[in-house]
Amino acid sequence: MSLEITCELCPHHCVIPDGGAGDCRIRVNLGGRLVATTYGRPSAIHIDPMEKKPLFHFLPGAPVFSIGTAGCNLHCLNCQNWQLSQKGGEEMEQVFDLEPEALVKTAKAQDCVALAYTYAEPVVFYEYVEDSGRVARAQGLRNVFVTAAYIERAPLKRLCRVLDAANADLKAFDDGFYRRVNAGRLKPVLDALVTFKQEGVWLEVTNLLIPTLNDDLARIRAMCQWMVRELGPDTPLHFSRFHPMYRMRNLPPTPAEALDRARSEALDTGLRYVYIGNLPGHEGENTYCPHDGTLLIARTGFWVMENHLDEEGRCPKCRNKIAGVWK
């Protein structure tokens, strides 16, 4: 009898022999049964401001109880959390025992308004997200998903039932980049972003701009045009500054001018909210009214310095509603 298992969670569709793990390292075939070995076993726990996800149009300044487990289904050469993401559960020294009920109870005790599934790749601890999300919802907490969006449509659609907001990476608008740098493909990611939108999850997109690899303005323009068309012009886009990391230490940090050029290009395509991240003090961290240019939310790094939106999320000057979830 074959004990081989095919995992259908993500587009890799790993065929896993008995005793082996999927490409993500943490979904393991034990005797013909696929086990989510990091279910209830996060290795990273922190309370972050919502802006760190980054989510700029979702409960500004709110404290979020953030967790992540080992494992990832992508293998980005520039990974910022490779000590967590590129390891299996059996390799981690620090593992907490925090089943969904205990997780939600701890988050509430810390006065957090939401749980964030983040740090590495929450797709690979799918079952833990779904169960925790359900418990959190029942107790009045929101659920935030920070992801590279490399997941099949059916599982994502089901997961969206418990998700309130997502920040998804769109690493490049280039399939070759995904194959070379991330060990993935572009199409499933685009499909996942559309699914988030269709399922009513508040979505913001992050694009890490890497010098010479994905900073071509024509491709950036094509990416933004796709966003306007498929996700809508109100979808916030965060251009994030690259820092040399992990297996990509041969490239310099992204120059501020390159981020400025990308932001201008994105705004020119019709996107209304385009931000610059990892560059504290830059005006691209602030939210401006797309109708009259009024400064609505001033930020420095992950901190909200001023918030002039009213409770309904309206511009104080022109009274237009700003897209987002504000309360």
Binding site: I5, T6, V35, E127
Partner: peptide
């Protein structure tokens, strides 16, 4: 914990 989304 048994995972979802797989077949033998």
């Amino acid at each position: 914990h048994e995972a979802l989304w797989y077949h033998v």
